[in-house]
Design a binder for these strands. Structure first.
Lengths: 241, 241
DNA sequence: ATCATAGTCGTCACACTGACGAGAACAGGG
DNA sequence: CCCTGTTCTCGTCAGTGTGACGACTATGAT
């Protein structure tokens, strides 16, 4: 694609040209493990290595639009299905050997992801265990290890004071399902009784639907929807037993 | 400036060229008011209007470097004197009528700022009252009103759980000076006795220097330095009397 | 019926909080 | 020198949130 038609006052030599991309940290929970979408790169640099999904921002789209589009291309999820928020930007010279590129990282949280289909510049896509990726420096191409770490830390912090954990759950969920989200993302184990008291006692967090689940073995659990509150008072604190 | 020499695999038509800038939200406290540095634009668009200081990222520098450089150019402050952190990025098409530009906003907090000297593309610089700027939509050029609002909200939130408030204070300060920071930034009034108990009781927040200030009228106050802790436990909560 | 499993409610001690009293250490004026 | 005003600092007390843990409830499996 060529440069856009120069509008009034446009001086193409007045600023250094950058490539701008959005990269996605797409998190979900599978088998009680926190997983992230990674794609296998089909072209150099890092051909054959795993990287976060992402791509160039088009000349006529906003940053959140670009993130939504890339998310749909890589996972088939629409913006209505997931929580999507900007995390941070990265622009160290040399982070991409091909060109000068600034990347805006977006965090996407989803309850259940459909089958992954590889994008145009990726030959494969899969879910990778987040702890394993973070424990192995260089597991991801470019500086994507840092992007992933920053995104995961953002998610971990926001569980405390926002209803973000419900983004990992289906529209209706039980307190135990919500607790598993906190336990998996934080990597801790929480007391079911205290957790139940806290989440049901925080005003506006959970709305009972009246229904309950019948599951194999054990008492049926009440089903909840997420409420209106965007900030939890009191918060769900991280240091629990 | 021209595009860099094409390295291997470089395809100049593969991505749309963007301008990348860093803009600064430089906050300080003057006369018990929260103030931000604004510059008067000397060129179109928005010539004569006030805007946040900032400028193009150079082809060979990292984003924090660019923020530090712009900060030094506009205020004379070096990175050692201030707290500097990235806030968010903005890239809506049309936000700058001249070209497609992505801006990374940085938050800078300083105790006492020297005289401001206008940068190359600004004809004047001054401190503006933050509440007044935020209360008047369109007070700032481009989308800088939103940048300022996001930066101020970041600062307000981080006062709760980080020692960020000390960035507004000189190296040695009293509990009352620190309390004034919280009161001014949050726009509330805090009980001096409870505040004293909380900040001195949070481990690692304040380190007594042993010295004290003699000031006009009233008992001398003990002087403190900031401690090592980066996260306050328990936090300094916002809803106080 | 009995057991295993999982969900929900209750109790207790402890920590933190907001509201407020009271003393300590200064400056300035009579 | 004493009094007063000001600011800093320490204490007290009731209300609330929290972690640890006991107890009860409601299902499926045997």
């Amino acid at each position: 694609m060529d440069a856009p038609a120069p509008p009034t006052g446009y001086r193409p030599d007045a600023f250094p040209p950058f490539a701008v991309t959005v990269d996605l940290i797409v998190l979900t929970i599978q088998d009680d493990r926190l997983r992230a979408v990674v794609v296998e790169r089909g072209v150099d640099p890092y051909a054959g290595a795993w990287a976060l999904p992402g791509g160039f921002v088009r000349i006529d789209e906003d940053l959140p639009e670009a993130a939504s589009r890339e998310l749909a291309e890589e996972t088939g999820l629409t913006a209505a299905d997931v929580h999507l928020e900007q995390v941070a930007s990265y622009g160290r010279p040399g982070r991409d050997p091909r060109m000068r590129v600034v990347t805006i990282a977006y965090l996407a949280l989803a309850a259940h992801l459909p089958e992954l289909r590889p994008g145009t510049d990726a030959s494969a896509a899969r879910f990778a265990d987040v702890d394993e990726l973070l424990g192995r420096p260089g597991a991801l191409a470019f500086d994507h290890g840092r992007l992933l770490a920053d995104g995961v830390e953002r998610a971990r912090a926001k569980l405390e004071y926002s209803p973000l954990a419900t983004a990992f759950c289906p529209p209706e969920f039980t307190v135990a399902e919500l607790r598993r989200v906190y336990e998996v993302v934080w990597g801790v184990s929480l007391d079911p009784r205290n957790f139940h008291r806290k989440v049901t006692g925080t005003p506006g967090f959970l709305v009972p639907t009246g229904r309950s689940t019948a599951r194999q073995g054990g008492r049926p659990a009440a089903l909840f929807r997420v409420g209106d509150t965007q900030v939890l008072h009191p918060p769900i604190t991280r240091r629990d037993g």
